[in-house]
Structures are given as structure tokens and as C-alpha cells.
Design a protein around this nucleic acid. Sequence first.
DNA 1: CTTTTCAGTGCACGCCCGTACACTGAACAA
DNA 2: TTGTTCAGTGTACGGGCGTGCACTGAAAAG
Lengths: 215, 215
Amino acid sequence: MTGHQTRSSQTRAERKEQTRRALLDGTLQLSADRGLSNVSLREIARSADIVPTAFYRHFASIDQLGLTLVDDGMRALRVMLREARRTPGGANGQASVEILSKHVRANRQLFQFLYRERYGGSVEVRRAIDTELRFIVGELTIDLSRTPGLQNWETEDLEMAADLIVSAMQEAMVAFLSAAKSDARAEDEIVERTRKQMRLILLGIGQWRPKQRQD
Amino acid sequence: MTGHQTRSSQTRAERKEQTRRALLDGTLQLSADRGLSNVSLREIARSADIVPTAFYRHFASIDQLGLTLVDDGMRALRVMLREARRTPGGANGQASVEILSKHVRANRQLFQFLYRERYGGSVEVRRAIDTELRFIVGELTIDLSRTPGLQNWETEDLEMAADLIVSAMQEAMVAFLSAAKSDARAEDEIVERTRKQMRLILLGIGQWRPKQRQD
DNA sequence: CTTTTCAGTGCACGCCCGTACACTGAACAA
DNA sequence: TTGTTCAGTGTACGGGCGTGCACTGAAAAG
């Protein structure tokens, strides 16, 4: 009631933030089974109970809102990766698959948004996602370079392996999200298959001869 | 000029087929950088130089047209796979990467359509693509089961390996299509990386112990 | 108390959309 | 020659869209 600070306001900004979140959540909901590009500004506004033109008080365009969602999704992804990295054998091992499944369940819509827009989104959204994804491959490459036995690998080869791991993980994520929401059996199968794939890749890495050449 | 057959007509059906192809080609063009769902029926009709309502003489809906494009794309994909299969070591080896790159270059838009709609398309289109893709994994599984040294693998494990190979190949395809149309250096890098990934997977397969268990 | 800020309102506009409907005219069958 | 088929036409409609513009009224600032 009595605002006596020289700094920022309170109730006013709170309400704005609330609407902003409603816009983001509503958009996530609406785009879940159609993609962002098939959602209209008016629909989004409706979902947040504001009039269409008020949308512009929060975002300059739907695309800008999309980029914010990409940020949110990537943040969730980084949280997941951090957990995987501090888990024993997490970054390349089998434990990471369970971590993936856990986080996917907790962030369904956000992750779905990411993989859907990665291929189907606008040019800007696609580029934003690809950039972040490349960054992730880079981090995994560094992780691998510190793994015992891989210190003398060439960066190119490390990147190649990291890329393969990320590809498999992404496919697992997509499979997860395609499975019915509470089909535990299907989820278990995906986990099992992906675990094996990780093991297969690790076996391959163990056999790799760093400077090998082919004609 | 003189049509004297009891069977089908000639010039009439030809013109229809011509328009049909114009519709398919135009749609492929229009959806290349926006996705099928962002293309309007009117645009498609315009691209084929017909009036909007005439569209329905050929397809019941844009979705139906999309399914036809999925068929076309899958046909191209099967042609590619057939070539890979009859090439020595093609199905899992490194030669298959070159075959992939060749066919992708020859069918850019069709393949782009496939991977874009696989995640971003309508429910029906997505299902059609996924079904076909699963079929391909199945065929590769059979190929693997005939490979010397893998005869006593369990089907589940073979499928797991086939799935990983297909994932890597798909990622390579996407990378190809994302690379600028005439960036030979980028394409070479992708080929090289994917080749190595195939080699890595093969090494992993070589080390695989069929009945291995983990806690 | 007075003034300023600004999230949200309400209306109006022009645009493109899908599609219903009645039609035309050339290719074809008889 | 005559009648039928049917790919393509042209008009018209109602509806959703993005957005420009003038506004309101409560919260914040002074």
C-alpha cells in the first residue's frame, strides 16, 4: 500500500510479469500441436485474457516471444546437462538417459517446442536453436577431451563423437515426446534402447585409433 | 488427333496430369522455407496458374497433397537405399554417406520437405512419415541380421543399432540441407564427419557382446 | 492533492483466406 | 452430328487476421 522506495515499483510490475507469463504459457500450449507459426497473435492474446493490441506491451512480435521461449527451453536443457555432468559417468554413460527422461517429463512442452521449432520454425528461431545446440556439442566435446583415454584425440574426432551422442539423445527425446503421456512401457523401451546406443558408442570410442585414415 | 481406343483418353488426361504436377512442384517450392502449413490453397493454385476452386479437381485438401509429396519423397528415399544396399558395404559402411549426399543433392526440396514435415507437419503427414521411417529401420535391421558376425544378435539389439545408424544419417541429411547450396567445403566436412560416425558405430558393433547385461 | 506513466481497451480498417455456386467450352464417346 | 464429361472460370460471401489510433483508469511519482 505505502510505497516508499526510490527504486522499482511493486504491484504494477508484478501484474505485468503475470500477464507476460500468461502469454508465454498460453503460446506454449497453443503451439504444442500446431507449431508456433500456426498460432495467431489474437489467439495468444485471448489465452492471456487481454485485447490483441495489448500484446505489443510485452513483445514486439510473435517471433520475439518465440525467441524468449527458446531461451527458456535452453535454460531447462542446460539445467539437465549440468545434472548429467556432475553425475558419475553422466555425460556419456547410461545414467544420462535416465536424467534425460526425467527432465523431459518435467518440461514436456518446452522441449517439444524446441525440437519442433528447430526444423519448422522461422529463420530466426531456427538459428537461435541451432546456435545453442552447437554450443552444447562444444561443451560435450570438452567433456570428452578430459575423459581418460581420450586426451590425445584430435578435436575433430572428439566433436564427431559428441555430435553422434547428441544426435542419439535428441532422437530419444523426440521418441519420448511422441510416446503417449503416460505410456510407461513405451518410455522404458526408449530408455533401454538409448542406453544401449550409448554403450555401443562408448565401445566404438574405446576401439577408435585416433589418427586412422581411410582411402 | 484420332482417338480410336475404347480404354482411356489421351490429351485430356495429359493436361490434367500436367496441372497436377504443377501443383505438387509449386507446393514444394512454396513450402521450402515456411513449411506446408504456412502455404495457402490460393497460393498453390496461383503457382499452377489455376483458379483456387480448381484445386479441388486434383486434391481434396492441402493435407492430401502433402501426403502425396510424402509418398514422392519416400520413393526417392527408397531409391537411395536400394543403391546403398547393393553397394559393397553400403548399408552400414562409409560408401553410403556418399550415396546419401548424391541423392540429397538431386532431391533437395523433396528431402527437405520430409524432415521439415516430420516434426512440424499435420498429424496425418507426421504419422505417414514416421510409419515409413520405422519401415526403413526395419529393413536395415534385416540387413544387419545377415551381416557376418551379427547372426546371433537379438532382434532388439539389431534394431537398436539400426536406429542409431538411421539417426546419424538423418542428422547428416539435415546438416546437408542446412548448408548453403553450393558450399562444397561444408558438404565435405559433413561427409567426413558422418563417415567417421559410421566407422565408430561399426567399431562399437564389433565389440558388442550380444547378451550383455548391466545392473 | 496533482501529475505522469503505462498496461490494457475498443473500434475500425483493409487484406487474404477457404469455399459455395453457377458457368463455360474443349475433349471425348456414341 | 449430338450429347456428355469435366478441368478450369468468375463472383461472392463471411470470417479471421494484424495493426493503427484515440482512449481509460489505476498505480506510481512529485
